[in-house]
Simulated scan of single mutants.
Amino acid sequence: SNSGNLAPRALFPVEGLVPDTDYKPILSGAHDKSVMGVLSGDYDMAAVASDVLERLEERGAVDRHALRVLYQSPLFPTSSFAHAHDLDPALAKKLTACFFAFRFPPEMTAAFNGDERFLPLRYDTAWQAVRDVIAAVGALPD
């Protein structure tokens, strides 16, 4: 996980919190399990994706006042769709048109905070924070 594992390893040391020195990283297996582990006292802290925490709050599973946010990272993209750079240009154009013409049904629109459709993004800018984290922890070669 980027936000639950790699990002803390890259971003926390800058804030003075070094993994394996100041704390022992433990993988809970899921962001919601990490939040519940903090609430139950199993963990002192947890790094979780903000959208997961927001969904837990919306469902009434978590009282936000029972938690304290210590650090908030730059936003990371949660997911995206892409095609290969060498895909036949005519097919790429058709796929792109299909995605951007699609409108979400009402239940999806509500789940996506009112967004009704897919939005275009550029890999080089939208995913820069993720690439910076990966480079900082040495997870992948440049």
Rank of each mutant, 00 (worst) to 15 (best):
K24L: 06
M45N: 06
A101T: 11
R131W: 08
V38W: 00
C98H: 14
A82R: 04
P77T: 10
F100D: 01
D42W: 00
A101N: 11
L70K: 15
G41K: 07
G41R: 05
D88C: 15
S80F: 03
D32W: 00
A136E: 12
G114Y: 02
R117M: 08
D124Y: 04
D42E: 09
D115M: 06
K24I: 04
P25E: 05
F118I: 06
P25G: 10
V62M: 14
P106T: 05
L39T: 11
A135H: 14
G41P: 07
G37S: 01
P120D: 02
A84I: 03
S79Q: 12
G41E: 05
V137A: 09
S79W: 11
S40I: 02
T78S: 10
D63P: 15
T78A: 15
T125D: 06
P120S: 06
D132M: 11
L53Q: 06
M45C: 14
A136I: 08
V133Y: 10
G114K: 08
K24H: 03
K93E: 13
L39F: 01
P106K: 09
L119C: 10
K33W: 00
E107D: 05
R131G: 12
R59P: 09
A97T: 14
A47F: 04
S28Y: 00
M45G: 12
S28A: 11
H83A: 02
D32P: 00
Q128F: 05
K93D: 13
M108I: 13
T125S: 08
M36V: 02
R117K: 13
V62L: 07
M45S: 12
L70C: 15
A129G: 07
D63C: 07
S73D: 07
D51F: 07
D32E: 02
A110G: 10
C98W: 04
F112H: 05
V35D: 02
A90D: 15
F81D: 08
K24C: 02
E116R: 05
L70T: 13
L119A: 11
R64K: 05
E107N: 02
F81V: 13
G60N: 06
L56K: 06
A66N: 14
D32H: 00
A61W: 03
L121S: 12
E58H: 13
H83V: 10
V130K: 10
D115V: 03
A97C: 11
D51V: 04
V69Q: 10
M45T: 14
A47C: 14
G29H: 01
P89A: 09
T96W: 07
V137G: 08
T78H: 14
Y71H: 14
M108K: 11
E107H: 14
E57A: 13
S40A: 06
S34Q: 01
D32L: 00
A84M: 06
T109Q: 10
L87E: 15
S50R: 09
Y23D: 08
R122Q: 12
D88A: 15
R55F: 01
Q128Y: 04
R122Y: 06
R59G: 12
P89S: 09
I26Q: 03
F81H: 10
M36Y: 00
P25H: 00
L95K: 12
S73N: 07
A82C: 08
R68F: 08
A126W: 09
I134E: 12
V69H: 13
A49F: 02
L70E: 15
D86Q: 07
V38E: 04
S34A: 07
K33F: 01
Y71E: 04
A97P: 13
R117F: 01
C98N: 15
A46V: 01
D86V: 02
